[in-house]
Amino acid sequence: MLELYHSGTSVCSAKVRLALTEKQLDFTSHVLDMSRGEHQTPDYRRLNPNAVVPTLVDDGLVVIESTVINEYLDERFEPHPLRPPDAAGRARMRLWTRQLDDGVHEMTSVLSFAIAFRHLLLAKSPEALAQHYAGIPDRARRARIRDAVENGVHAELTATALRRFERLVADMDAALARNAWLAGDELTLADIGLAPYLARLAQLRLEFLWQERPRVAAWIDAWRQRPAYTSALSNWLVGSPALALMAQSGESALPTLKSLLVQA
């Protein structure tokens, strides 16, 4: 039996749900309410010492880290393969998936907190906020989130994050000029890895990043037409207060964010 500990809003959770759904695998869902710190309890930390979502449990075997989980799923369950069959294709695919672990995820959390989620944390009492920070085991991640919460769009890394996504979108555009999907003509874990990140940017009202990249826009449209996109990604956000918060705060941050890119 497959069990998934996840949350509706987390991008890494959506990444694993997309892989499970594209592979037509059923799973028992354990949704954690991150705003109530359910990912920081001692019980959950025994499963996931980093206190992050998602965590997959496969007949008692615990697998953490979404990139690792997705390759695990594709190796463990052969039908509906999500990796190219050849070595070169797999290298192309992994060049995409490793970027998420090497900076893209970090920059997404900078933007998400600097624009939107800071408002949830700022509404907490000083004690509750201190407790929230203390519950983030990774010291660098703690400092980044704190800076984003305290300084909003003027946080140290906001412009760096926006530039990173400009480059990512340019790289995607170049790949999509060669193939229908990022790593070839079939959908792979590369597309699954990137989809929730682009969805997050859209939720934060940052679609301008690909307004001159029609191939990226077409890739997003192709995704939206797949049933998995609705059932594994969009449906988990329907009616979520986070969605409204991201839209509203994204709208108001937009002029400042655009000016940051001009200055940079």
């Binding site: 075997l61 070595a87 797999r90 060049l95």
Partner: peptide, 25 residues
């Protein structure tokens, strides 16, 4: 990291990844 996995995919005779999915994870 990508090069190392590539080498093991392209030249599997001396395998440097464990065979079981759980160990690979």
């Amino acid at each position: 990291t990508v090069i190392c996995e590539y080498l093991d995919d392209a030249y599997p005779d001396i395998a440097l990844r464990p065979p079981a999915p759980a160990d690979r994870a």
